[in-house]
Amino acid sequence: MGLGDKISNAAEDMGGKAKEAVGNATDNDRLKAEGQKDQVKADAKKVGENIKDEFKRD
């Protein structure tokens, strides 16, 4: 996984965590759910990149 991808995924994950925290603090269920969705997307991208890296090593 390239450094740019790692940074992008980390930023998306942190943004999702921030949205979720704001949603919790303001009782905004939509914002909380959107933050959780962003975190899941970042995790899925990270897994996909790790799989690609494993195939490149072989």
Score class of each variant (00 low, 15 high):
45 K>L: 02
44 A>P: 04
33 A>E: 13
3 L>Y: 10
38 D>R: 14
8 S>E: 05
53 D>W: 02
46 K>Y: 11
50 N>Q: 02
13 D>A: 15
15 G>L: 08
21 A>Q: 14
32 K>H: 05
58 D>G: 02
28 N>F: 07
6 K>L: 01
8 S>Q: 12
51 I>V: 08
5 D>N: 10
15 G>S: 15
25 A>K: 15
55 F>W: 08
3 L>C: 03
39 Q>H: 12
18 A>R: 10
41 K>E: 08
17 K>A: 11
11 A>D: 02
41 K>S: 12
16 G>H: 03
20 E>W: 12
12 E>V: 14
9 N>C: 13
44 A>W: 09
42 A>Q: 06
34 E>Q: 02
8 S>R: 06
25 A>F: 13
28 N>R: 08
29 D>L: 10
4 G>H: 11
31 L>D: 05
22 V>Q: 09
6 K>P: 02
29 D>M: 08
38 D>G: 13
49 E>L: 01
56 K>L: 05
7 I>Y: 00
37 K>W: 10
15 G>Q: 11
49 E>W: 01
27 D>L: 01
54 E>I: 09
53 D>T: 04
19 K>T: 04
18 A>P: 06
47 V>W: 04
18 A>E: 07
1 M>N: 06
23 G>E: 00
1 M>H: 01
4 G>L: 12
10 A>L: 00
46 K>R: 15
25 A>M: 15
48 G>Y: 09
38 D>S: 14
26 T>W: 03
40 V>N: 08
8 S>P: 02
6 K>V: 05
42 A>L: 13
52 K>E: 02
36 Q>H: 10
46 K>P: 06
4 G>K: 12
30 R>L: 08
58 D>A: 07
50 N>F: 01
56 K>F: 06
3 L>H: 10
13 D>V: 05
54 E>N: 14
4 G>N: 13
45 K>M: 03
30 R>V: 12
31 L>R: 05
44 A>M: 14
48 G>F: 07
11 A>L: 11
40 V>K: 04
39 Q>T: 13
26 T>M: 06
16 G>F: 00
28 N>E: 09
58 D>K: 09
8 S>H: 05
30 R>Y: 10
17 K>E: 14
4 G>V: 08
50 N>I: 01
51 I>T: 14
41 K>W: 00
13 D>N: 15
54 E>S: 14
5 D>Q: 09
37 K>H: 13
39 Q>M: 11
54 E>D: 10
